[in-house]
């Protein structure tokens, strides 16, 4: 159902990223998302970066609608639909390695909180790293990779993940980030014989599993996903390859 929530807190995470906090009583699981809207923007999907009674979204300003969200201040009202989607399937006794790339850290933060799992945060540069302090508080061990080497491991998150899997024993990788990263991470999991769960993105309209615009192969990202397990990912021909535009046309990733 849709709800309205008053914004109670705003945190600047990086030069282009803010966390917007509000009280929203709906029950949510790690990995779920909401459709967020205020007048003057398109309604867009946002992962819940906090899932208790106080919830939050962490928004990277990349276009008109995310820019509109960045203009909001404490006391403003936000319209939310959801929570939607499957979320991560977390089990006791499984040793997880969490990998968050870029804004993808927002989606996996509740997993780190719930499991205390070892965590890799990947970003382009030092100033693109978000939510490190929060993740650091809950993760058993935490490592950073930057593409330009300005902080932590010099290289991408997948290279760092391979290194950490050499040093430690994990059962399952949980990840959210750019699809190219996820695709290579998935390949690495195949090589290493690791299980995995990954959160994907496709263009969303209804968010509720009806309109069929967010399909990846025969799966609805908004309802069957956004988190898919290794078996589901292995059957996908479009993962890492192509997506649907707003008209439903198949377009290759550039």
């Amino acid at each position: 159902m849709s709800n309205y929530a008053r914004i109670t807190g705003i945190t600047v995470e990086a030069y282009d990223t803010k966390t917007i906090e509000f009280q929203w009583d709906e029950k949510a699981r790690p990995g779920q998302f909401a459709m967020a809207w205020v007048p003057g923007m398109e309604e867009i999907p946002m992962s819940l970066s906090k899932i208790g009674r106080i919830k939050s979204i962490t928004v990277k300003n990349i276009g008109e609608s995310t820019n509109r969200l960045h203009q909001l201040t404490i006391g403003d009202t936000l319209r939310l639909r959801g929570p939607y989607g499957s979320g991560y399937d977390l089990k006791k006794g499984v040793k997880y390695l969490v990998v968050g790339g870029g804004i993808g850290v927002a989606s996996v933060l509740p997993v780190i909180k719930e499991t205390g799992a070892d965590t890799i945060i990947g970003a382009r540069t030092d100033k693109d790293i978000i939510l490190y302090d929060q993740a650091h508080r809950y993760a058993s061990d935490i490592w950073i990779s930057t593409d330009d080497g300005s902080r932590g491991f010099h290289g991408n998150a997948v290279e760092l993940m391979r290194e950490k899997c050499d040093e430690n024993r994990y059962d399952c990788v949980i990840a959210c980030g750019p699809e190219a990263m996820l695709y290579h991470l998935y390949k690495a999991c195949e090589d290493l014989g690791l299980d995995c769960q990954m959160s994907l993105e496709r263009h969303m309209k209804c968010g509720a599993g009806l309109c069929g615009c967010c399909m990846i192969d025969d799966q609805r990202v908004c309802k069957d996903g956004p988190v898919f397990n290794k078996e589901q990912l292995s059957g996908m021909t479009e993962f890492g390859v192509s997506k649907r535009d707003t008209c439903g046309r198949l377009v290759k990733f550039g």
Binding site: M1, K205, C206, L210, C247, R249
Partner: peptide, 25 residues
């Protein structure tokens, strides 16, 4: 056709109201 911009769909107590705007390839 891309259809209408979001929001184009919402839940109400006993159903849904949509204005997808006939998006299709």
């Amino acid at each position: 056709k891309a259809g209408y911009p979001n929001p184009c769909f919402t839940e109400i107590k006993s159903g849904y109201v949509n204005a997808m705007g006939l998006p299709n390839p």
